[in-house]
Simulated assay, not measured.
Amino acid sequence: MTLVTLKDVLTPAYNQGYAVGGLVTLGWEDMRAYVAAAEAENAPVILQAGPSCREHTPLPVLGKMFRHLADNASVPVVAHLDHGYTFEDCKIALDSGFTSLMFDGSRKPLQQNIDETAAIAEMAHAAGISCEGEVGFVGYSGGEGSNGTDPAEAAQFAKESGVDAMAISVGNVHLQENKEGGLDEDRIRQIDTMTEVPLVIHGGSGVPIEQRTRLARETSICKFNIGTELRMAFGAALRDAVNQDPSRFDRVTILKETHAPVEAAARAVIRAFGAPPQG
């Protein structure tokens, strides 16, 4: 299997009751480990390039990296733009070979968000790729507070925007390092009953593992974005590698030692989503 769209992996997840990991990448080392983890678990994976990743590496380069990994993978791999804030962001990602565009208009008034997301969805669909939108703002740990998703607004957004997946704000928070919180399941079920589109949880690192597994099985949540949890695994592995021999300076040698720990952490994340073996 090879490069696929977001819709390609979320449609079976929606129909069969499991989720796919949207794993947030920052560089070659973690994205390579994520694909290795997906192959080891025989499950699909979504490689995500968010704003901080794009600050470090230009989108055209990221597109080539994602596509190279996908072309050599034995499982489905999605090349996904995470939190594109402008039409231009999304157009550059499309031109760079991404197969999924996430436009984030969640800070904007509902109708403006719908209209701008619909334009991105139209562009994506014309090119044969997917679009994810967001309704209700997901806040940041230690930063901006969340604005929870109104179920009626979610229903309108899902109907009018044309998205293939819809991110919602239901107690999830970006950059959360612990799992002491949890999601508002009543609100999720209200949204679920009013929509027929795969749902997405951003800030998935703060969601307890048991809840991830159960909601993937029982609701329309088909994608959890996981970043902080995996960055912590990478940081710990890198710190250990540096501290083992302070005289080392070759970064290739040092970075190689992050692969196995990050792959193991990603395997645990992917396994909890319950995807059946890929045919």
Rank of each mutant, 00 (worst) to 15 (best):
F98T: 07
D184G: 05
S106V: 04
I114E: 10
I188W: 09
G139H: 10
E185D: 10
A119Y: 07
N172L: 02
V138Q: 13
M123F: 06
G145E: 09
G105Y: 07
N172S: 12
L175Q: 15
V163G: 04
D150F: 08
I120G: 03
E196R: 09
M123V: 11
S141V: 01
E122H: 02
V138S: 11
G133A: 07
F157S: 09
F98M: 10
P151T: 10
D115K: 00
D186R: 00
I114A: 05
Q156R: 15
A158C: 01
A121Q: 01
G171P: 07
Q176R: 15
G182P: 09
F157M: 00
S146K: 06
E134T: 12
T149V: 03
A126I: 06
V170S: 04
T195G: 13
G171C: 03
N147H: 14
V163R: 04
G181K: 06
D164L: 07
D104E: 11
N178V: 06
I129N: 03
G171R: 07
S161Q: 09
G162D: 05
F98H: 13
G136V: 05
G182T: 07
A124P: 09
N178L: 10
R189Q: 14
I188G: 05
G162I: 02
K108T: 04
V163H: 01
H174L: 06
V138G: 06
G171T: 02
G148E: 15
A126V: 05
A158I: 04
D186K: 12
P151K: 12
T149L: 11
M194L: 15
E180P: 00
E196L: 05
Q190E: 15
C131T: 05
G128L: 00
A126H: 08
S146C: 09
A127H: 13
F98A: 08
A158T: 10
S141C: 04
S146D: 05
D192T: 01
H125C: 02
L94W: 06
A165T: 10
A154K: 06
L94N: 12
D192F: 08
S100K: 06
M102D: 02
G139P: 09
A158H: 01
S141D: 14
R187E: 03
R107E: 13
E144S: 03
E177S: 14
S96N: 00
N147K: 15
G142P: 12
I92S: 09
A154C: 02
P109A: 14
G136K: 06
I92M: 02
G142S: 11
E134A: 10
G143V: 11
E144L: 13
A155D: 14
D184T: 12
G142A: 11
H174Y: 01
L110N: 13
G97F: 07
R189W: 12
N113S: 06
Q190C: 01
H174N: 02
S141Q: 13
Q156M: 13
S130H: 04
D192G: 02
R107G: 14
A126G: 14
T117P: 00
A126P: 08
E160K: 14
A126N: 13
L110I: 12
N172V: 03
T99V: 12
Q111V: 02
A165N: 13
T149Y: 10
S96I: 07
K159M: 13
N172Q: 10
G105E: 09
S146G: 00
E116P: 08
F137A: 11
G105R: 08
A93K: 05
G142N: 11
S146M: 00
I168S: 06
